[in-house]
Amino acid sequence: MKKLSLIAMMAIAALSFQSCGGSKDSKEVADSVNAVKDTSTMAAKDTAGVTGAKGIAVDEGDAKFATGAANAGLAEVAAGTLASEKATNPKVKAFGAMMVTDHTKANEELMAIAKTKNITLPNEPDADHQKMKADLAAKSGADFDKAYVDAMVSGHKKVESLFEDASKNCKDADLKAFAAKTLPTIKSHLAEIEAIQKGMK
């Protein structure tokens, strides 16, 4: 019965997404779905034969951290791929390749956690990050390098703040541990891209 209601709810979410004329991006859709579905650990498993067992639902703020982290990770991979192909500065090119490797790994870890919690994650970056990627793709040479580096400094400051907060305040132990484990890598990325930015001035 629970599976049937989940399928019906997802169909409604899909229809409402279409009726908005596609104005909602992947992150907004994921947040909407998570707001109305059972994110308990039991819901992610086949509950047949389990009597009276109900997991603790994931806190709404924790689910939003998961979608925000996934959104940022997807954006880093997309922009990093672009930088590893288009950058003229070897340090910028190498940083882009590192973003693809590190954020793909973190995204996979987060997806595995989200699956056990029945949390829906976005499958592509949100509209703001899609625009950033399109703007970057239109640039070349030193202009591309500068725009990418500036975007990475700004983006990593926001992501550092997101993960810092989650590492202290997430109620879900697995998401809190993921945030705490990933935070040093984000801090290291920020320090490296700030050093590259300084060297370009």
Rank of each mutant, 00 (worst) to 15 (best):
M1E: 11
K2M: 08
K2W: 03
K2H: 06
K3P: 09
S5Q: 12
S5M: 12
L6G: 06
M9N: 11
A11R: 03
A13C: 15
F17N: 13
F17Q: 10
C20N: 14
C20I: 01
C20T: 14
G21P: 01
S23G: 06
D25H: 00
E28R: 04
V29G: 08
A30S: 11
D31C: 07
D31R: 10
S32M: 15
V33H: 00
K37W: 00
D38K: 03
T39D: 02
S40R: 11
A44Y: 00
A48W: 03
T51P: 00
T51V: 13
A53R: 04
K54A: 08
A57V: 15
E60A: 15
F65H: 13
A66M: 13
T67N: 06
G68I: 09
G73K: 00
L74I: 04
E76F: 05
E76V: 00
G80N: 08
T81C: 00
T88N: 12
V92E: 06
K93V: 03
G96T: 05
A97W: 11
A97Q: 14
M99K: 07
V100A: 14
D102T: 07
D102I: 02
T104C: 09
A106M: 10
L110W: 05
M111C: 01
A112K: 15
I113A: 12
A114K: 14
T116I: 09
K117H: 09
T120L: 14
D126N: 15
D128L: 02
Q130E: 14
M132L: 15
L136I: 02
L136P: 03
A137I: 00
A138R: 09
S140I: 02
A142V: 13
F144N: 01
K146C: 00
Y148N: 07
V149E: 07
V149I: 11
D150T: 12
V153G: 12
V153D: 03
L162I: 01
F163N: 03
F163G: 08
E164N: 11
D165T: 15
A166K: 13
K168H: 07
C170Y: 03
K176V: 04
K176C: 07
K176T: 08
A177F: 05
A177K: 12
A179P: 04
K181C: 07
L183P: 05
K187D: 11
K187S: 09
S188W: 02
A191F: 01
A191M: 00
I193N: 04
I193G: 03
I193P: 05
I196D: 06
K198S: 08
K198R: 12
K201E: 11
